[in-house]
Deep mutational scan, measured.
Amino acid sequence: IINNLKLIREKKKISQSELAALLEVSRQTINGIEKNKYNPSLQLALKIAYYLNTPLEDIFQW
């Protein structure tokens, strides 16, 4: 999986903590996703895309 979450999140000036709060997950979860240590569920990936107002395929590429 190619993961552009960190790049997109930083472009939008959103911290890991802010995104985690919006998604109701821990900051460690966001960190793990960004470091490719954790693959989000489809539901979480869709929520990330929604809150970042970015197409899912721009954030994650399988």
Rank of each mutant, 00 (worst) to 15 (best):
I1R: 12
I1Y: 15
I2V: 13
I2P: 09
N3H: 04
N3A: 04
N4A: 05
N4M: 06
N4K: 10
L5M: 12
L5G: 00
L5Y: 00
K6G: 08
K6R: 14
L7Y: 13
L7V: 15
L7Q: 13
I8W: 07
R9N: 01
R9K: 01
R9M: 06
E10I: 12
E10S: 08
E10P: 02
K11T: 11
K12I: 08
K13D: 09
K13H: 12
I14A: 02
I14M: 15
S15L: 06
Q16N: 03
S17V: 12
S17N: 13
E18Y: 08
L19H: 03
A20G: 07
A21T: 12
L22E: 07
L23D: 00
E24W: 08
V25N: 01
V25W: 02
R27I: 15
Q28S: 13
Q28A: 13
Q28V: 12
Q28P: 07
T29G: 03
T29E: 09
I30S: 00
I30H: 00
I30R: 02
N31D: 15
N31K: 14
G32D: 15
G32A: 15
I33A: 02
I33T: 01
I33S: 02
E34L: 04
K35Q: 15
K35W: 07
K35H: 14
K35S: 14
K35R: 13
K35A: 14
K35V: 10
N36F: 11
N36L: 10
N36R: 10
N36Q: 13
K37W: 15
Y38K: 10
Y38P: 03
N39Q: 15
N39Y: 15
N39E: 13
N39L: 15
P40K: 02
P40D: 05
S41A: 05
S41W: 05
S41K: 06
S41H: 06
S41C: 06
L42M: 12
Q43W: 13
Q43E: 12
L44S: 02
L44T: 05
L44G: 00
A45W: 10
A45L: 06
A45I: 05
L46F: 07
L46A: 06
K47W: 05
K47N: 06
I48M: 08
I48R: 00
A49Q: 03
A49E: 02
Y51I: 14
Y51S: 06
L52H: 00
N53A: 12
N53W: 04
N53R: 10
N53T: 07
T54Y: 06
P55N: 07
L56H: 03
L56C: 08
L56Y: 06
L56N: 02
E57Q: 11
E57K: 11
E57P: 06
E57L: 08
E57F: 07
E57A: 11
D58P: 01
I59L: 11
I59Q: 00
I59D: 01
I59G: 00
F60W: 10
F60T: 00
F60C: 04
Q61H: 12
